[in-house]
Design a protein around this nucleic acid. Structure first.
Length: 261
DNA sequence: ATGGTTGGGTTCCAA
């Protein structure tokens, strides 16, 4: 399960409800917004996740991988864009003789103006996508799962209005082109294996909306990719849309997939 | 064209 939780400490009670109901074996979180010394490790152990790999900072970003079963190895991850800003971590799990690698990403959102000259945050996002693509092209994924808030909605039906969002950050051509190039280093988009590309599919709804469910102006910003060699192991996928309607929600909802390893 | 809300800081920034 992957979820941009938008503050781990604030949403621990909601996380507990989700874990009780959906029983994920491995949980990848983004925007934990907590430094490592304040990480609520004991609460998460009590929820069943004895094995934890997290990297966080004050106020912003932060990623965590939580597992019921041991990690074989915690992986070193590259420094992207010369920033140590807690946007990526990775582990190996499963059978030590044939481990599965899990990458957990929080891609820069990119700010408001879709112009790398005017907006340094957009330039950072494009550069981040270029760097991760080059890295995965040089280290082709095998027995790998990549999840997270990738902050791009690549397909027309990944947004509520393709035409109206063509110049909105997360759906512009330069972002989509890079996002697709990254996926094409060797990953299958398992959400779109399950839900055909001509059907609407969202994982995020803005807080800035009177009635998110009625207007349903969503975007698919969260993704689960599986390396092509194990794509056939993938069994189910669910977007937990109802979590957006919970009390005190994140603006993102969890995405759940079952993969036989 | 505009403004709408949330979280984690502090008196604003990022999303």
């Amino acid at each position: 399960m992957t979820w941009n939780i938008n503050s781990l400490r604030l949403r621990l009670p909601l996380l507990q409800q989700i874990v009780m109901r959906d029983q994920p074996d491995i949980l990848c979180l983004q925007e934990t917004k907590v430094t490592d010394d304040l990480f609520p490790a004991e609460s998460l152990t009590a929820l069943g996740f004895e094995y934890q790999h997290f990297t966080g900072m004050k106020s912003y970003n932060g990623v965590a991988i939580l597992s019921r079963t041991p990690f074989i190895r915690v992986l070193e991850t590259p420094i992207w864009c010369e920033k140590s800003d807690c946007r990526h971590n990775a582990v190996e799990i499963g059978d030590a003789s044939k481990p599965i690698t899990i990458h957990n990403f929080y891609v820069p959102a990119g700010g408001d103006i879709p112009d790398p000259v005017e907006n340094p945050k957009f330039a950072h996002k494009l550069r981040f996508l270029d760097e991760v693509t080059a890295w995965f092209a040089a280290h082709r994924p095998e027995r790998a799962i990549l999840v997270g808030d990738l902050n791009t909605a690549p397909l027309e039906q990944d947004v509520w209005s393709h035409k109206q969002l063509l110049n909105v950050v997360c759906h512009t051509e330069p972002e989509v082109r890079r996002h697709v190039a990254w996926q094409n280093t060797g990953f299958t988009d398992v959400m779109r294996v399950m839900v055909p590309a001509d059907q609407k599919l969202y994982t995020w709804w803005s807080y800035r909306n009177r009635d998110w469910a009625a207007s349903d102006r969503g975007r698919r910003l969260d993704h689960i990719w599986v390396s092509d060699d194990i794509a056939a192991r993938f069994e189910t996928m669910r977007v937990l849309r109802d979590i957006r309607g919970a009390a005190g929600p994140s603006d993102h909802v969890p995405v759940f997939a079952d993969i036989a390893l």
